[in-house]
Simulated assay, not measured.
Amino acid sequence: MLEASLHEGQLLTLLIMALALGMDAFSLGVGIGMRGIRLLDILKLSAVIGLFHVIMPLVGIVAGQYMSLLLGHVAALTAGLLLILLGGHMLIASFRGDGGATPSFVDHRTTGGLMLFALSVSVDSFSVGISLGMFAADVVMTILLFGLAGGLMSVLGLLAGRRIGRSLGSYGEAAGGAILLTFGILFLL
């Protein structure tokens, strides 16, 4: 009986952590969705984000015995800087009226941009994985919950951003950039 309640407690804890980590994917999704995104791109981006939310904590769990305090700070700093870069670029492009002239490293439709976006929202999963590795969390349950939450939250964010972006018209990209920039600054604080 005690073992069953411990397992349920671990499941609930991991589910809450997965949803919290997925909020980054949701907020990024809103920002990208406001620029306008096709349904196929929503599926591709969400699948890659979900995959990164599996790989990054798994790597973190494996490395869980090493340098958790240092890497936790570095992961938050990296995620914050990436989001500031992406949000700042979106803001500048919207004011310049580039009309989609986005460098490939920040364009979610390119392989590099896709990887950059997925990394920016899943790098904190790596540091959480390190902590979980030191506490001997159930690895399979952890990575499945993190991957599902990351993918689902990004789909929801992208769809919400897409709908909001249609309402905002030409201001959608500026609003999305401001959201990403704000989250990047919050990561650094």
Rank of each mutant, 00 (worst) to 15 (best):
T78D: 10
G129H: 14
G113Q: 06
L132F: 13
L70A: 05
V54E: 06
L69F: 12
S104H: 12
S131L: 15
I84E: 08
I130A: 08
H108Q: 12
L71F: 14
S46P: 14
L85R: 04
Y66C: 06
F52R: 02
L82V: 05
G88F: 05
G80F: 08
A101Q: 10
I92G: 01
S127C: 14
A63F: 05
R38W: 03
S46A: 09
H53W: 02
A76H: 13
T111R: 03
V54H: 12
F95P: 00
V74F: 14
L45V: 08
I84C: 07
D124P: 06
L86G: 07
A79Q: 06
V128A: 04
G72H: 15
Q65N: 15
I49E: 01
L58T: 04
L71Q: 03
S127L: 10
S122W: 02
A76I: 14
D124W: 01
G64S: 14
G64L: 07
L91M: 04
S46V: 00
G99A: 11
P103Y: 06
M67K: 03
P57Q: 14
G129Q: 08
I130Q: 09
G88M: 00
P103Q: 00
Q65R: 12
F95A: 05
L81D: 05
L43Q: 08
V54P: 02
G112I: 05
V54L: 15
L77C: 15
V121M: 01
I42R: 05
L82Y: 08
F126G: 03
L39A: 15
S131Y: 13
A63H: 04
P57L: 12
L85S: 05
G97K: 11
Q65I: 15
S68G: 08
V123A: 12
S46T: 00
I130K: 12
L40N: 12
S46H: 02
V74A: 15
L43H: 09
G99R: 04
F95Q: 01
L51G: 12
D107L: 02
V121K: 03
G100I: 04
A76E: 14
I84F: 12
L69P: 06
L40F: 10
S68K: 13
I42Y: 02
L81M: 10
V121I: 02
